[in-house]
Design a protein around this nucleic acid. Sequence first.
DNA 1: ATTCCTTTGAAGGAT
DNA 2: ATCCTTCAAAGGAAT
Length: 103
Amino acid sequence: MCCECLSPSAGRQVVKKPLNAFMLYMKEMRHKVLQEGRERESAAINRILGRRWHALSQSEQSKYYDLAQKERLLHMQLYPGWSARDNYVCTVRPSQCPYTVSV
DNA sequence: ATTCCTTTGAAGGAT
DNA sequence: ATCCTTCAAAGGAAT
């Protein structure tokens, strides 16, 4: 991590990305997968959820796409001018890191 | 104490 | 305009 100011211990207030449709689906369904089996690792859970996501009908998926759209709109209202780049660690263009100033 | 793993999708950057 | 990378969630595992 080249951006010290991005580390949680630096105490910088981070506005995160809005959740996409699948992420919202995960948030809602994860606990069910946890109940059904004794699988505990998120990597395994997310693999299962990925399969279930593709098994969903179009109308079932559209519910989450609609929700994700609302989240994006709300995010825009709450944080005008916000950019996803704010939370990027500068692995691509380290020389143009916006967070090189001391914290 | 952090990073990895793993999924889809949005968004940004690079080409 | 199209391709590539990061990161949103999450938590056990790995480092």
